[in-house]
């Protein structure tokens, strides 16, 4: 009996766990190991057998001596927190708004807000690059010029008098428009799955829309808020694809537009040092995991994972 139960569990779990093990966990551990090798230029054969802590020493030295690091740290903190708030609350607001709409209109809006997530990073960044271009031909500048709000084109992300806020704003806007859609989809479907009767009952009791949201809807999607918050937090700490292109193309200030993830990977990739990149990733994952565990505990994850009821 017990043996066959184990067999059954293995039958269900092994494909997924095997894949995650081979392509996620083993590489992850290997990547942590690579952080302790001088791997560069992809030369696996020559460097993978050598153990060294030079990558960590290098990163540590850089972080304590580089005059631009304080900018990077500030940018990372501001960018991560503000974008996280924007993504979670914005996603929630979008989900609520589309929830209260008629379905056909709602679908159009949800599709619109989903577009950034479906667009290739390079194309999406390109569009924003021209949006914020500091020339009269930039989308934003040309619009504001025509409306008479400004009388000469503004370099939003590079004009020193507008920094750091200008660069931060661009980063947050560009990432925010991608980020909100994740929350939107999850929250919207969660709201849709709330039994209709609850909402109707509350309405009959005379609840206003605000009360309805606070008393009935938010409690029911608490788990989803946790999930999205943590997922987004971890994403924001580690991704840099959009930011890389925006700084590379010069639409934001080089250092006020660089987050920590971008900083270390730039450092590692301009000279092809994968060892340094792996070391940096290890530090990132340590920070991310700690923040993730803290938020899981704070947000009460345990209560949300009840044991299965009627196991036979």
């Amino acid at each position: 009996m017990n043996k066959s139960r184990l067999g059954t569990i293995l039958f269900f779990l092994s494909p997924a766990l095997a894949l995650v093990l081979v392509f996620y966990i083993i590489p992850l551990i290997l990547a942590i190991y690579i952080g302790f090798t001088p791997l560069r230029d992809w030369n696996l054969k020559a460097y993978l057998g050598k153990f060294t802590t030079q990558s960590y020493q290098y990163l540590f030295y850089l972080l304590t001596h580089d005059p631009d690091v304080s900018k990077v740290v500030k940018t990372t903190i501001v960018f991560t927190t503000v974008t996280l708030v924007v993504n979670v609350l914005g996603g929630l607001a979008l989900a609520l708004a589309t929830f209260f709409m008629e379905e056909r209109v709602s679908l159009t809006y949800r599709s619109l807000w989903l577009l950034p997530r479906l667009t290739p990073v390079a194309v999406y960044s390109l569009l924003w690059y021209y949006f914020f271009l500091g020339d009269a031909s930039g989308t934003l500048n040309s619009l504001l010029l025509r409306l008479g709000v400004i009388d000469h084109p503004v370099s939003w992300g590079t004009d020193p008098s507008l920094q750091p806020e200008g660069s931060w704003l661009i980063l947050i806007v560009v990432n925010g428009f991608v980020g909100v859609s994740f929350g939107m989809i999850i929250f919207y479907s969660a709201l849709k799955s709330i039994p209709r009767e609850h909402i109707i009952a509350a309405r009959i009791d005379g609840a206003t829309t605000l009360q309805l949201i606070r008393r009935v809807m938010l409690p029911q999607i608490r788990w989803h808020l946790v999930y999205v918050t943590i997922w987004q937090l971890l994403s924001l700490l580690t991704t840099f694809a959009h930011i890389f292109l925006l700084t590379e193309w010069g639409v934001v200030d080089r250092w006020w537009g660089t987050t920590w993830a971008l900083y270390v990977f730039n450092e590692a990739f301009t000279t092809g040092e994968q060892g340094v990149a792996a070391a940096a990733a290890t530090i990132l994952v340590a920070i991310g995991a700690v923040l993730g565990i803290i938020s899981l505990r704070l947000l009460g994850f345990k209560k949300m994972m009840p044991e299965p009821r009627g196991e036979l």
Partner: peptide, 27 residues
């Protein structure tokens, strides 16, 4: 170059900046 063009740094400040950046990178 970007800093001097923007006027954020004078040329001698920018030279100091270059030197400090070089020294910050151990390699």
């Amino acid at each position: 170059v970007n800093y001097v063009l923007l006027g954020e740094m004078t040329p001698d400040k920018a030279v100091q900046y270059i030197i400090s950046k070089v020294k910050a990178d151990p390699e």
